[in-house]
Design a protein around this nucleic acid. Structure first.
Lengths: 223, 223
DNA sequence: AAAGACAATCATATCTGTCTTTTTTATGCA
DNA sequence: TGCATAAAAAAGACAGATATGATTGTCTTT
């Protein structure tokens, strides 16, 4: 039920000059080129998810976004499902990579968790992921792909935090609460800001409050 | 980009016997009948939003859900947009009504706010509303319909709370924080439970914690 | 008889998956 | 080295399915 489908004549995509097929220069092995084209399509899919939402992320739109024909696209991904699957896997690994990077930083105040995750949530990857999660609610196939990854993420999220803040090991109840609280509140905020429910000015006080909450839950400090 | 469209032959809807048009018995005035049919279509739309999501809430599906032909449906709503608009208005008023009902209850602990709103969020109306809100992110027409209502809801939410708990008037900063915190966290939880990210077992501890938080923000009590 | 409620059908548009054709790239052999 | 050829990549065309809005027809209520 797309509201008011504005019919815009799509501009004709003129074929690129033969030699310059992608963004990279020079000759490569075809395998590498194929991998790059696949990556390009996946990136285009993420952009489409952000721009148009899951429902309106169609194969023609992705192909156009990637600067390819649908035919070429179907050469790399046999169907739309394969593309979505690959995109989900990529998004998942990107989230995990970003988290690991953050963990490698030297200094770790307990409240860094808040700032770090909040920054993650500002990125396109999260918006795309949420689009998929919402769609999965009414699409069991999508759900079966997404669910295990969501579980794995929550698990690694906790494992990461547990490792970074060993002082929390003594009260696992507080720890679990702090983790759930952080994840839920921050994600809720991100969604609310995106979907227009929440004024952006209210973000900072909320972050501060959450940080204070978490600090209060650390056993040695106060909880 | 619907994943794996399972093609089910839709059962042919046999025309109902002329006299029994809906769920109601007996002859009625046409005006009343029309109003009832419109209501039936709106209810069907809400059910479709919950069952299929916004993207897959199509005019044929709504008509089928309402037990009407598409033609009849188009007689009552000139196009899909009109139906969605009417549904949004209905959902909005339903949310406000539910809130007003809750406010009429005699006893009001401060933490009642949490329980009351959490119960609201379990209803289909919220799921439907969130489907619309997510769709509105990438649909400016839908957003222009939804945004003012979201603002009005937040405003009334606050006004209601302010009226119920006058002891909060002395520290508006705490009040604003408590309101935003409640709304964001509870909605985040509801969404997270729906979209499979959050284990239902974690709900109760979170509610308790939020209640404690709010109590701590009330000026006379502790904040 | 007029108007309202409802049903059925039509034309158009778009997305999807498949198939065919063209172009590019890599490689084997003279 | 240079050309021929196969494989990969890309493009284009096609048919099936479905959604949408509009039109037309039928029955019932007023």
């Amino acid at each position: 039920m797309a509201l008011s489908r504005t019919r815009i004549a799509r501009p004709i995509r003129q074929p690129r000059p033969a030699n310059e097929t992608g963004r990279e220069k020079g000759p490569q092995l075809q395998a590498a080129k194929a991998a790059q084209t696949r990556a390009r399509l996946i990136e285009a899919t993420v952009r489409c998810l952000v721009k148009y939402g899951y429902a309106n992320t169609t194969t023609p739109k992705v192909a156009e976004e990637a600067g390819l024909s649908r035919g070429a696209m179907m050469h790399h991904f046999e169907n739309g499902t394969a593309l979505i699957k690959a995109t989900i896997a990529e998004l998942h690994e990107k989230r995990l990579r970003a988290f690991r990077r953050a963990a490698d930083k030297p200094v770790h105040e307990v409240t860094d968790l808040v700032e770090t995750y909040w920054r993650q949530l500002q990125k396109p990857a999260f918006i795309a992921f949420h689009e998929l999660a919402v769609a999965a609610r009414t699409d069991s196939d999508l759900a079966s792909i997404l669910k295990p990854l969501q579980d794995e993420f929550a698990e690694k999220f906790n494992a990461q935090a547990e490792q970074l803040f060993p002082e929390w090991a003594s009260s696992p109840v507080n720890f679990a609460l702090a983790m759930t609280l952080s994840q839920t509140l921050l994600e809720g905020m991100a969604i609310s800001v995106q979907t227009g429910g929440m004024d952006a000015a209210k973000v900072e006080p909320m972050l501060r409050h959450l940080e204070a909450q978490i600090a209060a839950l650390v056993p040695t400090t106060g909880g």
